[in-house]
């Protein structure tokens, strides 16, 4: 059986999630015995348009990206959104709070009209996505899990529950008890609760769980003397594409 051909693509992003793939080190060597890498600009110069699986990092913020992404979809059998920018829009969605013209002027000044810009969207707003690897950045183990599942033609084991589960398993003291805002109770787990473990409130980089109890989360904030605005401002760091979801 020939090895599946895998390509990595960058859209609007820091390419940090692809960097996480490169930090797999020894596992990476094992991985390339199972797959052929067709394109991966962060790691190699060769490129090819012949691939089966496309890992797409980044969000869509310019019209030209839409065409490029559609072409990838046409060529690939499987498309995987890699990291928060691709899965939920991510940090790039911050600009959606402004008028596009204003954003253009702030960023490009006199050159503004040479660079078009559109409200940021996750890749699934443009094409059909088969799998999602959440997080900013992605979790190494989850990348491996999804890749293995694809090779085995199985459903990847990705948690649907909130961050609190992993946080409590690690015996962290709840950040609400320290007067901090945390989106853990409404955010998808899989990150091993890394931010709360290091005393930083969850900002929701993996997106909301399927069925969050937002009104109860808001009451929880109030009870700890925190405001919904504080939570929204935390949520907006990654969730700007779906502000209405938290509101």
């Amino acid at each position: 059986m020939s090895k599946p051909r895998v390509a990595f693509f960058s859209f609007s992003s820091c390419e940090g999630c692809q960097l996480v793939v490169l930090t797999l080190e020894e596992q990476l060597l094992e991985l390339v015995t199972l797959i052929d890498i067709a394109s991966f600009r962060e790691a190699m110069s060769e490129k090819s348009d012949d691939y089966d699986i496309a890992f797409v990092e980044g969000s869509i913020t310019r019209t030209s990206e839409i065409e490029r992404l559609r072409t990838i979809r046409e060529r690939a059998k499987i498309v995987i959104a890699l990291g928060a920018c691709a899965t939920i829009g991510g940090i790039n969605c911050l600009k959606n709070q402004f008028e596009m013209e204003e954003v253009q002027n702030i960023v490009y000044g006199k050159m503004a009209e040479k660079f078009d810009t559109i409200p940021t969207r996750p890749i699934e707003a443009v094409i059909k996505v088969d799998h999602w690897i959440h997080g900013c950045p992605i979790d190494k183990d989850e990348f491996i899990e999804v890749t293995k599942a694809l090779l085995l033609d199985k459903k990847p084991r990705i948690p649907a529950h909130p961050v609190c589960v992993e946080c409590q398993m690690r015996e962290n003291v709840c950040l609400f008890e320290k007067g901090m805002v945390c989106l853990g109770p409404v955010t998808r787990a899989g990150c091993k609760a890394i931010c709360p473990t290091y005393n930083d409130g969850c900002v929701g980089c993996r997106g909301l769980i399927e069925d969050p109890n937002l009104s109860s989360h808001k009451n929880l904030l109030n009870e700890h003397g925190l405001t919904v605005d504080e939570a929204i401002s935390q949520y907006m760091l990654f969730g700007g594409n779906s502000k209405e979801k938290y509101e």
Binding site: H161, C164, V165, Q168, P185, V186, N213, S216, H217
Partner: peptide, 25 residues
């Protein structure tokens, strides 16, 4: 209406024993 569905009550319970089984290649 109140429950967040966060699972913490289960995780901290001395008598909860449910587990999920999975294969890891």
């Amino acid at each position: 209406e109140r429950c967040l569905g966060c699972g913490r009550c289960n995780i901290v319970c001395p008598t909860c024993y449910c587990f999920d089984v999975y294969d890891c290649m």
